[in-house]
């Protein structure tokens, strides 16, 4: 970890300005991912702007329906919120399926969206990695890729987006609200927030330099039954091999997104449209164009089977 200077910001705009002002500056909120990466010298900020004291830790009702989740709402608080549990169960379920109680107490809504991949080659600075060291190559391609992406990857990077919360937010059509160093604000649909690697895998999201996430908004409740089914070898405290976030209505219609299979939460309109027709009909468009490696090919049948599980649970309800 390289030496860095540190300051505590007292407003979102000031925080954004502070990061924009200092080359190599970064925000720190929960810190559970950035400190992990700083210890390995994968992240090397010169200056940290601690945003924990910003008043962005509330969950508010939006007039006309929906909620605004402050960027600093901790994962535990979000999962435990009565409104989220009642109306956005898929989000509560996704959060409590991730990490551990300790990490969820610390991790924030915004920080979790920005969680970086768990690709083991990304984490090992002696190995080439286009995400960590652009142009150095990808050691994961042809290597150990059991956890890695089967769809949406590129010849430059096959890393998976590792989070759970964002998969639920994708299915809920969340919007990410930001403030820029100049004080301007933006609303980025979650579908556009995470980027596919293409030939710039180091560019993981739509944020501009210094842009700070202030909130995530959820539209009015969808109703239906909410599911987050996470599949992993270990029963807890493990990243998903495959996860399925779904909202399913009594008539079988609904929405679905996958985690653990792609560089971003994976959702395809045509798959949603096929929800009434069973897991195979959903899996086909959802995973069309998949390019698995040898040791992660099982994720394709696993995704379909997990869909089948969720759909059968929905029926049983």
């Amino acid at each position: 970890m390289k030496p860095f200077t540190y300051e505590r910001a007292d407003s979102p705009a000031a925080a954004a300005a502070a990061v924009a002002r200092t080359p190599g500056a970064k925000f720190i909120a929960g810190g559970t991912n950035i400190l992990d990466l700083m210890k390995l010298q994968i992240e090397t900020p010169t200056h940290l702007v601690d945003v924990n004291r910003l008043a962005l830790d509330r969950i508010e009702d939006i007039p006309g329906g929906g909620v605004r989740i402050g960027a600093l709402v901790r994962n535990t608080a979000l999962a435990a919120d009565r409104r989220i549990r009642k109306h956005y169960g898929v989000l509560s379920r996704a959060i409590v399926a991730g990490a551990s109680g300790q990490l969820r107490n610390k991790a924030t809504t915004a920080g979790n969206l920005l969680q970086r991949t768990r690709c083991p080659y990304f984490y090992d600075t002696a190995q080439p990695c286009n995400k960590r060291a652009p142009g150095s190559g990808c050691a994961a391609i042809g290597g150990i890729s059991r956890q890695l992406a089967v769809i949406g990857a590129s010849d430059h990077c096959i890393a998976t987006y590792p989070g759970d919360m964002a998969v639920a937010m994708r299915v809920l059509d969340a919007t990410v609200e930001t403030v820029s160093p100049d004080g301007g604000t933006r609303a980025i649909p979650i579908a556009d927030f995470h980027l596919l690697p293409g030939d710039t895998p180091q560019k993981e999201n739509a944020l501009r330099p210094g842009e700070l996430i202030t909130a995530v908004t959820l539209p009015a409740p969808l109703g239906g039954r909410h599911f987050y089914q996470k599949v992993r070898d270990r029963a807890s405290y493990a990243f998903a091999l495959v996860s399925v976030a779904a909202v399913i209505h009594p008539d079988g219609s609904g929405r679905v997104a996958l985690g653990g299979v792609a560089p971003k939460p994976w959702r395809v309109d045509a798959a949603d449209a096929a929800m009434k027709h069973g897991s195979r009909a959903v899996a086909e468009p959802l995973l069309a164009g998949a390019r698995p490696a040898g040791d992660n090919a099982f994720k394709l049948p696993l995704a379909e089977r997990t869909l089948a599980l969720v759909m059968s649970e929905a029926k049983a309800a």
Binding site: R8, I28, G30, L35, L48, D50, T76, Q102, N105, K106
Partner: peptide, 28 residues
């Protein structure tokens, strides 16, 4: 030292956290 084991768990302001993944300065 990477939030993967829980041996560093402490209770901060009533919540258990991994103290290895928190800067001391964040606990003013």
């Amino acid at each position: 030292d990477h939030g993967q084991c829980g041996a560093c768990t402490v209770i901060a302001d009533g919540h258990r956290i991994n103290s290895c993944l928190s800067l001391a300065l964040m606990h003013e």
